[in-house]
Computed example of a mutant assay.
Amino acid sequence: MKRTPFSRWPCSVARTVDVLGDWWTPLVLREAFYGVTRFDDFAKSLGIGRNVLTQRLGRLVEEGMLERVPYQERPVRHEYRLTEKGRDFFPVLMAMMRWGDKWMAGDDGPPILTRHTTCGHTAHAEVVCSECRQPLRHGDVRPELGPGFPERLREPAEELPRFAADSRSGPGRSGGDVREE
């Protein structure tokens, strides 16, 4: 089955999915956030095949989320360290963890807690407005075309219900996507 590339779609969610590509990639990033840097440690902690891990690490290096840094000369061995771009993915993983803790954890509760070392409390992700700091909730936001949306797709996109000025159309009530071919 041929994979549909999303890298040219005018949508940041689609482009992010294109980088992640599969279920192993976020888990590799999770381990990197937990401090794992070496190939064998990734393989051991994830129980992932070496060939799959090689592909995922290579893709993350190619995308600039990890950098490959030598730590041994004979034989040459490398560590995989988070870049600024990779570290910026942390809130995404925290949001996924928050959702999973709410909807996928068993009766015993979340399997892993996150302690905020600054204040000492256990914490979870909150998505808030960058301006007023109020929570961003589904019913309180609406999509608008941004400056990076391709000019040639603007007119057809403006016809989609999700971009209508009428607030009754609201988020989550629209049809298909505008794809960049």
Rank of each mutant, 00 (worst) to 15 (best):
R68N: 04
E67C: 04
M94S: 10
L82N: 02
P91E: 09
L66M: 01
R68I: 00
R74S: 12
G58I: 00
E67T: 10
L60K: 01
K102S: 14
W99L: 11
M94G: 12
V76K: 14
L57M: 01
P75N: 09
L66T: 03
P75I: 05
A105T: 13
T83I: 03
Y71R: 05
G58C: 06
V61S: 02
R59W: 07
L66W: 07
P70S: 10
G58E: 03
V92S: 04
T83E: 07
Y71D: 12
Y80M: 00
M104A: 14
R77L: 15
D88G: 10
G58S: 08
K102A: 15
R68M: 11
M94C: 12
Q72F: 06
D101Q: 15
G86F: 03
R81T: 05
R68K: 15
Q72I: 07
D88F: 03
V61P: 01
G109E: 11
R59H: 08
M94D: 10
K85R: 10
D107A: 14
E73I: 10
A95S: 10
W99E: 12
R98G: 04
V92G: 03
E73N: 13
R87P: 05
D88C: 01
G106W: 08
R59F: 00
A95H: 02
R74V: 11
M97A: 14
L93N: 02
V61G: 00
L93I: 08
F90N: 10
G58Y: 08
E84A: 06
F89M: 15
L82A: 06
M96A: 15
G58A: 10
Q72R: 15
P75F: 04
P75H: 04
Y71F: 14
M65W: 13
G109N: 10
